[in-house]
Protein backbone atom coordinates (compact mmCIF):
# COMPACT_ATOMS: atom_id res chain seq x y z
CA UNK A 1 0.00 0.00 0.00
CA UNK A 2 0.95 3.54 -0.29
CA UNK A 3 2.93 4.90 2.54
CA UNK A 4 2.66 8.34 1.22
CA UNK A 5 1.44 11.11 3.41
CA UNK A 6 -2.04 11.73 2.23
CA UNK A 7 -2.82 15.32 1.46
CA UNK A 8 -5.89 14.59 -0.61
CA UNK A 9 -9.14 14.15 1.17
CA UNK A 10 -12.59 13.13 0.03
CA UNK A 11 -13.72 10.55 -2.44
CA UNK A 12 -11.44 11.71 -5.12
CA UNK A 13 -8.62 10.67 -2.94
CA UNK A 14 -9.57 7.02 -3.44
CA UNK A 15 -9.36 7.41 -7.16
CA UNK A 16 -6.13 9.18 -6.77
CA UNK A 17 -4.68 6.46 -4.64
CA UNK A 18 -5.97 3.80 -6.99
CA UNK A 19 -4.31 5.64 -9.74
CA UNK A 20 -1.02 5.83 -7.94
CA UNK A 21 -1.03 2.18 -6.99
CA UNK A 22 -1.63 1.34 -10.61
CA UNK A 23 1.18 3.64 -11.50
CA UNK A 24 3.34 1.97 -8.94
CA UNK A 25 2.54 -1.38 -10.37
CA UNK A 26 3.50 -0.40 -13.84
CA UNK A 27 6.48 1.43 -12.59
CA UNK A 28 7.47 -1.58 -10.59
CA UNK A 29 7.31 -3.89 -13.53
CA UNK A 30 9.06 -1.33 -15.68
CA UNK A 31 11.74 -1.12 -13.09
CA UNK A 32 11.94 -4.84 -12.83
CA UNK A 33 12.29 -5.31 -16.53
CA UNK A 34 14.73 -2.50 -16.83
CA UNK A 35 16.75 -4.02 -14.01
CA UNK A 36 16.61 -7.35 -15.70
CA UNK A 37 17.68 -5.89 -18.97
CA UNK A 38 20.34 -3.91 -17.22
CA UNK A 39 21.55 -7.10 -15.64
CA UNK A 40 21.39 -8.78 -18.96
CA UNK A 41 23.36 -5.96 -20.47
CA UNK A 42 25.83 -6.21 -17.65
CA UNK A 43 26.15 -9.91 -18.18
CA UNK A 44 26.57 -9.55 -21.88
CA UNK A 45 29.04 -6.78 -21.33
CA UNK A 46 30.83 -9.01 -18.92
CA UNK A 47 30.66 -11.84 -21.34
CA UNK A 48 32.08 -9.77 -24.10
CA UNK A 49 34.72 -8.47 -21.77
CA UNK A 50 35.53 -12.04 -20.86
CA UNK A 51 35.57 -12.81 -24.51
CA UNK A 52 37.84 -9.87 -25.21
CA UNK A 53 40.01 -10.84 -22.33
CA UNK A 54 40.17 -14.39 -23.52
CA UNK A 55 40.92 -13.31 -27.05
CA UNK A 56 43.69 -11.00 -25.92
CA UNK A 57 45.17 -13.57 -23.65
CA UNK A 58 44.45 -16.66 -25.68
CA UNK A 59 48.14 -17.34 -25.95
CA UNK A 60 48.68 -17.06 -22.22
CA UNK A 61 45.66 -19.16 -21.48
CA UNK A 62 46.96 -21.78 -23.78
CA UNK A 63 50.56 -21.81 -22.72
CA UNK A 64 50.54 -20.72 -19.11
CA UNK A 65 48.96 -23.24 -16.78
CA UNK A 66 48.65 -20.84 -13.86
CA UNK A 67 46.98 -18.27 -16.01
CA UNK A 68 44.70 -20.90 -17.46
CA UNK A 69 43.69 -22.15 -14.05
CA UNK A 70 42.93 -18.62 -12.93
CA UNK A 71 40.89 -17.96 -16.00
CA UNK A 72 38.94 -21.13 -15.38
CA UNK A 73 38.39 -20.05 -11.82
CA UNK A 74 37.16 -16.69 -13.00
CA UNK A 75 34.68 -18.39 -15.27
CA UNK A 76 33.57 -20.63 -12.47
CA UNK A 77 33.01 -17.60 -10.25
CA UNK A 78 30.35 -16.26 -12.59
CA UNK A 79 28.86 -19.66 -13.09
CA UNK A 80 30.27 -20.38 -16.49
CA UNK A 81 31.80 -23.74 -17.03
CA UNK A 82 33.86 -23.10 -20.08
CA UNK A 83 33.98 -26.74 -20.98
CA UNK A 84 30.26 -27.35 -20.87
CA UNK A 85 28.33 -27.00 -24.07
CA UNK A 86 26.92 -23.51 -24.39
CA UNK A 87 23.35 -24.70 -24.73
CA UNK A 88 22.95 -25.08 -21.02
CA UNK A 89 23.68 -27.25 -18.07
CA UNK A 90 23.44 -30.89 -17.46
CA UNK A 91 22.41 -33.41 -19.94
CA UNK A 92 22.30 -31.23 -23.00
CA UNK A 93 24.25 -33.06 -25.63
CA UNK A 94 26.78 -30.63 -26.95
CA UNK A 95 25.40 -29.33 -30.16
CA UNK A 96 26.90 -25.93 -29.55
CA UNK A 97 30.53 -25.23 -29.04
CA UNK A 98 31.82 -25.01 -25.54
CA UNK A 99 32.64 -21.70 -23.97
CA UNK A 100 36.30 -22.30 -24.60
CA UNK A 101 35.57 -22.76 -28.24
CA UNK A 102 33.31 -19.76 -28.41
CA UNK A 103 35.68 -17.58 -26.53
CA UNK A 104 38.90 -18.60 -28.05
CA UNK A 105 38.10 -19.90 -31.43
CA UNK A 106 38.87 -23.53 -31.14
CA UNK A 107 42.36 -23.33 -29.77
CA UNK A 108 41.87 -23.79 -26.05
CA UNK A 109 39.07 -26.18 -26.66
CA UNK A 110 41.45 -28.15 -28.80
CA UNK A 111 43.99 -27.93 -26.05
CA UNK A 112 41.72 -29.85 -23.73
CA UNK A 113 40.61 -32.17 -26.42
CA UNK A 114 44.20 -33.01 -27.29
CA UNK A 115 44.96 -33.39 -23.64
CA UNK A 116 42.02 -35.73 -23.23
CA UNK A 117 43.33 -37.81 -26.09
CA UNK A 118 46.72 -38.01 -24.41
CA UNK A 119 45.10 -38.95 -21.12
CA UNK A 120 43.25 -41.75 -22.86
CA UNK A 121 46.50 -42.88 -24.44
CA UNK A 122 48.38 -42.86 -21.16
CA UNK A 123 45.62 -44.78 -19.44
CA UNK A 124 45.64 -47.28 -22.28
CA UNK A 125 49.40 -47.63 -22.31
CA UNK A 126 49.59 -48.26 -18.59
CA UNK A 127 46.41 -50.27 -18.13
CA UNK A 128 48.34 -53.50 -18.36
CA UNK A 129 50.48 -52.61 -15.40
CA UNK A 130 47.96 -50.84 -13.20
CA UNK A 131 44.63 -52.44 -13.99
CA UNK A 132 43.19 -49.15 -15.21
CA UNK A 133 43.74 -47.14 -12.07
CA UNK A 134 46.35 -44.43 -12.26
CA UNK A 135 47.20 -41.43 -10.17
CA UNK A 136 46.40 -38.09 -11.73
CA UNK A 137 49.91 -36.88 -10.98
CA UNK A 138 51.32 -39.87 -12.81
CA UNK A 139 49.21 -39.16 -15.85
CA UNK A 140 50.38 -35.59 -15.79
CA UNK A 141 53.99 -36.67 -15.60
CA UNK A 142 53.59 -38.93 -18.58
CA UNK A 143 51.67 -36.40 -20.60
CA UNK A 144 54.32 -33.79 -19.96
CA UNK A 145 56.96 -36.24 -21.03
CA UNK A 146 55.14 -36.99 -24.23
CA UNK A 147 54.43 -33.29 -24.62
CA UNK A 148 51.23 -32.55 -26.39
CA UNK A 149 51.66 -30.58 -29.52
CA UNK A 150 51.08 -26.89 -29.19
CA UNK A 151 51.38 -26.89 -25.44
CA UNK A 152 53.92 -24.69 -23.85
CA UNK A 153 57.02 -26.05 -22.25
CA UNK A 154 55.38 -25.27 -18.95
CA UNK A 155 53.21 -28.22 -19.64
CA UNK A 156 49.99 -28.99 -17.94
CA UNK A 157 48.73 -29.09 -14.39
CA UNK A 158 46.75 -31.77 -12.65
CA UNK A 159 43.91 -29.31 -12.84
CA UNK A 160 44.11 -29.47 -16.61
CA UNK A 161 44.19 -33.24 -16.56
CA UNK A 162 41.03 -33.38 -14.47
CA UNK A 163 39.32 -30.89 -16.75
CA UNK A 164 40.34 -32.96 -19.74
CA UNK A 165 38.88 -36.07 -18.15
CA UNK A 166 35.70 -34.05 -17.66
CA UNK A 167 35.48 -33.48 -21.40
CA UNK A 168 35.24 -37.21 -21.89
CA UNK A 169 32.10 -37.47 -19.84
CA UNK A 170 29.63 -36.43 -22.54
CA UNK A 171 31.02 -39.25 -24.65
CA UNK A 172 29.66 -41.67 -22.14
CA UNK A 173 33.14 -42.75 -21.34
CA UNK A 174 34.16 -45.07 -18.57
CA UNK A 175 36.68 -42.52 -17.38
CA UNK A 176 36.12 -41.17 -13.95
CA UNK A 177 38.05 -39.57 -11.18
CA UNK A 178 38.06 -41.28 -7.83
CA UNK A 179 39.73 -40.47 -4.60
CA UNK A 180 41.73 -43.07 -2.75
CA UNK A 181 43.17 -41.76 0.45
CA UNK A 182 44.64 -38.38 -0.26
CA UNK A 183 45.23 -38.89 -3.93
CA UNK A 184 43.06 -38.60 -6.96
CA UNK A 185 43.08 -41.37 -9.49
CA UNK A 186 41.74 -41.70 -12.97
CA UNK A 187 39.89 -44.90 -13.45
CA UNK A 188 39.67 -46.07 -17.01
CA UNK A 189 37.87 -49.34 -16.46
CA UNK A 190 34.30 -49.38 -15.24
CA UNK A 191 35.06 -51.15 -12.03
CA UNK A 192 33.77 -50.16 -8.65
CA UNK A 193 36.09 -50.66 -5.75
CA UNK A 194 34.55 -51.92 -2.59
CA UNK A 195 35.53 -50.34 0.69
CA UNK A 196 38.00 -53.07 1.57
CA UNK A 197 39.75 -52.68 -1.73
CA UNK A 198 39.90 -48.93 -1.32
CA UNK A 199 41.33 -49.34 2.14
CA UNK A 200 44.03 -51.68 0.84
CA UNK A 201 44.93 -49.34 -1.99
CA UNK A 202 45.08 -46.45 0.40
CA UNK A 203 47.41 -48.34 2.71
CA UNK A 204 49.57 -49.44 -0.20
CA UNK A 205 49.71 -45.87 -1.40
CA UNK A 206 50.99 -44.66 1.94
CA UNK A 207 53.34 -47.52 2.74
CA UNK A 208 54.40 -48.57 -0.73
CA UNK A 209 53.24 -52.10 -0.15
CA UNK A 210 51.00 -54.11 2.11
CA UNK A 211 50.90 -57.68 3.28
CA UNK A 212 48.30 -59.90 4.85
CA UNK A 213 49.76 -59.45 8.30
CA UNK A 214 50.02 -55.70 7.88
CA UNK A 215 46.34 -55.54 7.06
CA UNK A 216 45.53 -57.80 9.97
CA UNK A 217 47.56 -55.67 12.36
CA UNK A 218 46.58 -52.24 11.15
CA UNK A 219 43.01 -52.69 10.05
CA UNK A 220 42.20 -55.53 12.43
CA UNK A 221 41.02 -57.67 9.61
CA UNK A 222 40.82 -61.42 9.67
CA UNK A 223 43.31 -63.27 7.55
CA UNK A 224 40.59 -64.33 5.14
CA UNK A 225 39.36 -60.81 4.69
CA UNK A 226 42.85 -59.46 4.04
CA UNK A 227 43.60 -62.30 1.66
CA UNK A 228 40.41 -61.75 -0.27
CA UNK A 229 40.92 -58.02 -0.71
CA UNK A 230 44.51 -58.52 -1.83
CA UNK A 231 43.69 -61.31 -4.22
CA UNK A 232 40.85 -59.32 -5.72
CA UNK A 233 43.14 -56.40 -6.38
CA UNK A 234 45.81 -58.63 -7.86
CA UNK A 235 43.12 -60.16 -10.01
CA UNK A 236 42.19 -56.71 -11.22
CA UNK A 237 45.82 -55.97 -12.00
CA UNK A 238 45.88 -53.16 -9.49
CA UNK A 239 48.54 -54.65 -7.27
CA UNK A 240 51.76 -56.49 -8.04
CA UNK A 241 53.09 -59.33 -5.88
CA UNK A 242 56.61 -59.66 -4.63
CA UNK A 243 57.18 -63.20 -3.41
CA UNK A 244 60.85 -62.85 -2.58
CA UNK A 245 60.45 -61.25 0.80
CA UNK A 246 59.73 -62.93 4.11
CA UNK A 247 56.04 -62.48 3.51
CA UNK A 248 54.37 -61.84 0.19
CA UNK A 249 54.24 -58.14 -0.38
CA UNK A 250 51.66 -56.44 -2.52
CA UNK A 251 52.84 -53.30 -4.23
CA UNK A 252 51.03 -50.48 -5.86
CA UNK A 253 52.25 -50.22 -9.45
CA UNK A 254 52.31 -46.47 -9.02
CA UNK A 255 55.54 -46.93 -7.13
CA UNK A 256 57.16 -48.16 -10.25
CA UNK A 257 56.63 -44.80 -11.88
CA UNK A 258 57.56 -42.55 -9.04
CA UNK A 259 60.83 -40.84 -8.43
CA UNK A 260 62.86 -39.07 -11.02
CA UNK A 261 64.42 -41.97 -12.81
CA UNK A 262 64.11 -41.99 -16.56
CA UNK A 263 61.30 -44.21 -17.69
CA UNK A 264 62.43 -44.67 -21.22
CA UNK A 265 65.58 -46.68 -21.09
CA UNK A 266 65.32 -47.68 -24.70
CA UNK A 267 66.42 -45.06 -27.14
Amino acid sequence: MSHRKNKAVGLAAFDRSRLTSAQYATHGSALRSSQASALETQLSVFRSLLQQFAATHAKDIKSNPTFRAQFARMCAAIGVDPLLASSGHGDSKGKGDSMWAQLLGRTVNDFYFELAVRVVEVCGETRGENGGLIEVGMVRERVVKGRVEGMGVQGVTEDDILRAVGTLKPLGSAYSVIKVGSKQYIRSVPKELNTDQSAVLEAAQVLGYVSVSMLMDNLRWTRARAQTALEDLVGEGMLWVDKQGIEWEYWSPGFMLEGDLPLDGFD
Binding site: V234, Q244, M256, E258, G265
Partner: peptide
Amino acid sequence: FPREFFFPPFFTRQTN
Protein backbone atom coordinates in the same frame (compact mmCIF):
# COMPACT_ATOMS: atom_id res chain seq x y z
CA PHE B 1 68.27 -48.59 -14.97
CA PRO B 2 64.58 -47.84 -15.29
CA ARG B 3 62.39 -47.37 -12.26
CA GLU B 4 60.81 -50.79 -12.46
CA PHE B 5 64.23 -52.26 -11.78
CA PHE B 6 63.83 -50.96 -8.24
CA PHE B 7 60.28 -52.23 -7.89
CA PRO B 8 60.51 -55.54 -6.01
CA PRO B 9 57.54 -57.28 -7.69
CA PHE B 10 59.23 -56.73 -11.03
CA PHE B 11 61.32 -59.78 -10.14
CA THR B 12 58.40 -62.05 -9.31
CA ARG B 13 56.31 -63.53 -12.08
CA GLN B 14 52.94 -61.84 -11.86
CA THR B 15 49.97 -64.15 -11.69
CA ASN B 16 47.55 -61.83 -13.43
